[in-house]
Design a protein around this nucleic acid. Structure first.
Lengths: 332, 332
DNA sequence: CTGAAAGCGCTTACAG
DNA sequence: CTGAAAGCGCTTACAG
């Protein structure tokens, strides 16, 4: 029950004294060389006077599209995905597209049972941070993968997480650290595999470098336990490299439980740079991942794809942000 | 360019050997007494065999609806609104509705310039946490207001923030606190006005109760400054009541800067119970607001409204969660 | 350079 | 109990 019936292209045609086809041509921007400039102008004026806006349902029906894309994320609870959505929605809106969000099927909190075969009619899919075993599922719908690693078949936008991890390792090594503990996310995603590899390689390249590794869920309690285990060995690490800012919060708790001051007795780093990073005390040294940019670039790539172009893979740079959670190790 | 052309109601009609009207009647659930059970069954079977799903664009065009509602929130960066969306989207999906999100116009990061008069064709609006001066704007579109206070004209769903604030005051008073500092959000929304009033009333009712008040943005640095000011007076408060968990994080920083241990030298409370509350050290005593439930109930109310019913105002209970940031004041 | 007509896939009076 | 027909508002060949 829409309150007031909006003007249609027929109304505009009548107001401008032309036919409906002419209105459609002019307003659709396909009039060059087909409609006289004077007529085009009068159509535009009429449309403006009437406050005309095309009925998307009719447009979609005629064109067979929905102008809706689906953004799939692992979870909406993680603070990381709000900005991804914002970036995607901004670019989409500029092109008259809407964005609908769905969480991965295994997430019971998700709005839809399954995005594959859901009720939603969709023009394309933006799939962010996919589980590794879910790759290559997109047969029928144009898709772009975000933060899911390079892929032969589907266009991708990724973060340069390896560079980010290397920047952290360099920063820590420069401060004098040699014994590193990696508090790694036990999540089967490309981004975490890439982080682990990059850190391992960086430490291996460091004379005297030693790396131990513990895994946990991306959750404070689990992270605290993992950090506790890492710190309880005979030659404990002097720096804890965490796969996520939230994991770093767990590392802080472990340090506090053991009476270790951060950063004087233990350096801690995060990854992502969400709000939490500056809410913690001390503020967290971490790698800033441009989440909103990921969404924006991903949507741009998807729109390209929908227009028949073949977007090249893109990699977004992550930036090391040095704050107060890292310092020289106690015993030089 | 949808990959494969889906079956239409005409295909189903042919498969079942009936007319398109009969298909529509049966699948729309309006056949009782109009179509024989046997025919209905064969239509359903045919639809299932073909994997038929109605074309929403055609449906919307015919019906004049969009089956889309707009959720307006102040910002997508705040961790509070992810769950609101999730709850709303879940209920919407159950009724075949989609949810599109927009931030308030003044937020430059928002996807649309202005939701009023945006390109989006919408059946209804869910407006969350509205600025006080933006009330009463909904003339043309059915709307439900969330977390924006009671309103004569528009159905509402709110939190019982006054009760929550009272629970905090009682908890603190029970521990022996008498000097309270309110680190209040300088945000012109009903919820914050209600919190301030409830706290003031509770402290006023407490023999020997004293309340001082400082305001800040919902942001760590600003909150820290406000807390610092409150704690620097001659008779500083022994408990800081914060309007938001993030503000509480700022209060922690102020305490640390002054060498005040939380909770032994200073009690701190938050509001909302977002992820941050348990990431902080010590974990934060706060009031849990059921954000996802707010979204779900709001959508239920809006759907009622769209069907011509008149949903009654609802108030959702906030629950005090006692953790480790509150204790007896040092000097009884 | 412009218009009349068809048709996208539905739902709903209307006729039988 | 069932079907033929109209029409929602667009866009796009097609004719002139």
């Amino acid at each position: 029950m829409p309150a007031i019936s909006r003007p249609t292209s027929k109304d505009v045609a009548q107001e401008a004294g032309v036919s409906q086809s002419t209105v459609s041509l002019v307003l659709g921007g396909k009039w060059s060389g087909r409609v006289s400039p004077a007529t085009a102008r009068s159509v535009r004026d009429a449309a403006e006077r009437l406050g005309y806006r095309p009925n998307q349902a009719a447009r979609n029906l005629r064109l067979g599209t929905t102008r809706t894309v689906l953004l799939m994320v692992p979870t909406l609870s993680a603070p990381f995905f709000g900005p991804v959505y914002t970036g995607a929605a901004r670019v989409a809106a500029q092109h008259g597209f809407g964005v609908v969000v769905s969480t991965w099927p295994d997430d019971a909190a998700g709005p839809a049972d399954s995005p594959f075969g859901s009720d939603e009619a969709i023009d394309g899919i933006l799939a962010s941070s996919m589980p590794v075993d879910a790759l290559g599922r997109f047969r029928e719908t144009p898709a772009v993968m975000l933060d899911s690693g390079p892929d032969g078949g589907v266009p991708t936008v990724d973060f340069g997480v390896a560079d980010g991890m290397r920047a952290i390792a360099d920063h820590l090594a420069g401060l004098g650290h040699r014994r590193f503990g990696h508090v790694a996310a036990a999540v089967d995603q490309w981004t975490f595999h890439a982080r682990a590899e990059a850190l391992a390689a960086a430490v291996a390249a460091l004379p005297g470098g030693v790396l131990t590794r513990g895994t946990c869920a991306i959750e404070v309690t689990s992270a605290k336990d993992a950090a506790l285990r890492l710190l309880s060995g005979p030659q404990p690490p002097t720096a804890l490299v965490c796969d996520d800012d939230l994991i770093a919060a767990g590392a802080y708790k472990a340090a506090r439980a053991l009476g270790l001051d951060v950063p004087s007795a233990l350096s801690v780093t995060g990854f992502d740079d969400v709000l939490l990073a500056t809410a913690l005390e001390p503020e967290l040294t971490t790698v800033r991942l441009p989440a909103e940019e990921l969404g924006a670039q991903g949507m741009t790539a998807l729109l390209d794809l929908l227009e028949g172009r073949r977007p090249a893979p893109r990699v977004l740079h992550g930036e090391l942000v040095v704050r107060d959670s890292t310092a020289r190790p106690r015993t030089g």
